[in-house]
Structure formats: structure tokens, C-alpha cells
Design a protein around this nucleic acid. Structure first.
Lengths: 120, 120
DNA sequence: CTATCATTTGAATAATTGTTCATATGTATT
DNA sequence: AATACATATGAACAATTATTCAAATGATAG
């Protein structure tokens, strides 16, 4: 009973060497793709999506955003921090109040495409 | 020492009632925005981003993808499952081998915009 | 049927992350 | 000064998740 359980599982040689080679060449730098994933990770939370969509309409202060989303001011502030670090929102201070707005035009385009994907 | 620490923290009445009202009206359904976040969550992992970018070039079997990304075949399979559930990839079987390819044209557009945001 | 190989799946583990609570800034008013 | 209020921040907790390992399918050839 010499069960030869080798289970190569696609060992050394490729199944399709030429495809592996050309795709490996054309694939963008790992670091760039990592940054892309990081950007999408920021979009990948419903609270942040709702904040950005709210800011599509108008600049807003933290309190107003919290009221529109029916969430804690602290929770909103934490998420605005994430959006700020990703350079997706900018802010201006007026007295005690801080007003946030969108920092980038690409955002709306990206969201529009996402909507289209979901709708179809 | 009657320290009146009330800390309203934007209590009942809005700071900007008219903005809160109009934004609340225009904001898309929570469910739709939740779906948008779910889609971006799928894009928010560098392994999946690399898989999708690889598939931009050519359809590929699981083993080849694993070799291009220098990762376990099992890890790739798990992620392909996520991409499949999100209707982002489709597959065809040919004997023992399963070939994956992109299921949607929006993906490339979304990624292009993401690249632009990062580059600028 | 058995052996082999590509792929899938399930459980376990480690790491990441969103919210809450409490507290700390910062700014204006008295 | 002290008070009030908008916002920010830090620690803690719960929940989610990507990878690994082991084992199970599924498919073909002998």
C-alpha cells in the first residue's frame, strides 16, 4: 500500500508559463496596488461612504453630519480623521466650528461607477 | 462650586437646520450606500486588487494567479470566492482547471480613477 | 476502481478596525 | 479668570477578516 500522496498542487513548473510571465511583467508595482487597496479600504465602510455622499451636497460641520447620519459626534470625528488622512476631505475652521468638504473630484466619478455596478 | 458641566455637544437643535434638512433629503438610501461600501470593501484588500489587475491582462487559472502573486493556492481560492460572490469575476471549467476572468467593465474604470487619485 | 492533480472548503489563529466612553483641546463669551 | 460648546483624541471592547493548515471535492488518465 505505497500510497503515493504527492499532491503537487501546481509545484515548480507553471501550468501556463507564458501567461504567468507576461502577466507578471505587466502587473503594476506591488506598492502602487497596495496604495489602491488602501484607498478602497477607506471607501469600504458605510459610515464613511455616507459622510462622503453627504459632502457631495454641501460642506458641513461635524455636528450636522452626526445629526444627518444619526450617529455620535465622536464616531463621525474619528471617521473624518481617516478621510482626512486619505486626502479625501479638507476642512476650514470658523470659530468653534470646523467645516468639512470634499478634497477631490475623482471621488464622485468613482462612486458613480460603483453605483452603476450595483444597479445593473 | 456649581460647575455646570452640561456639554451640549450639539444637543437637540441643529447648528444648521436647513443644511441638515436638505442633505438628509438628498442622501441616497442607507441600504444602497451600504451596498456601495460592501463593493469597495471587496476592493480594499491588496491581494484581491492584485488578482483583479492580473485578470485585466488575461484569464487565468488559480495556480497561475498563485504563482504570479507568489502566494498559496488556497489563499487565492479563498479570495476568488469573495470576488465571485461580489459578481466581479466569472469562471469556466476546462477539465481539472478552472479559468477566472473579469465579469464587469466598470471595474477597470473604477480602478483607473483610483490610480489617478493616488498619482496626483 | 485507483492514483493524481487542480481546486475548494472548513476550522483556527492573528491582525485589523469601528464604535463607545471618558477626557482633552481649542475657541469664544462673560 | 471661568464657563460653555464644538471638536478631537486615547483606551478598551467587540466584530470582522486574511492567511494557514488539513482535509474534502471534482475530474481525468491508467
Amino acid at each position: 500500500m505505497a500510497e503515493n500522496i504527492m499532491n503537487d498542487i501546481c509545484g515548480n513548473e507553471s501550468t501556463h508559463p507564458e501567461i504567468v510571465r507576461t502577466v507578471s511583467e505587466k502587473l503594476p508595482d506591488v506598492e502602487l496596488l497596495y496604495d489602491v487597496a488602501e484607498l478602497f479600504k477607506v471607501f469600504g465602510d458605510s459610515t464613511r461612504v455616507r459622510i462622503l455622499c453627504a459632502l457631495f451636497e454641501s460642506e458641513m460641520c461635524v455636528c450636522d453630519i452626526a445629526e444627518v447620519l444619526d450617529m455620535t459626534q465622536s464616531a463621525i470625528s474619528h471617521q473624518l480623521r481617516v478621510l482626512k488622512q486619505a486626502r479625501l476631505v479638507k476642512y476650514r475652521r470658523d470659530g468653534k466650528t470646523v467645516y468639512y468638504s470634499l478634497a477631490d473630484d475623482h471621488i464622485q466619478t468613482i462612486f458613480d461607477q460603483a453605483f452603476e455596478h450595483i444597479m445593473e
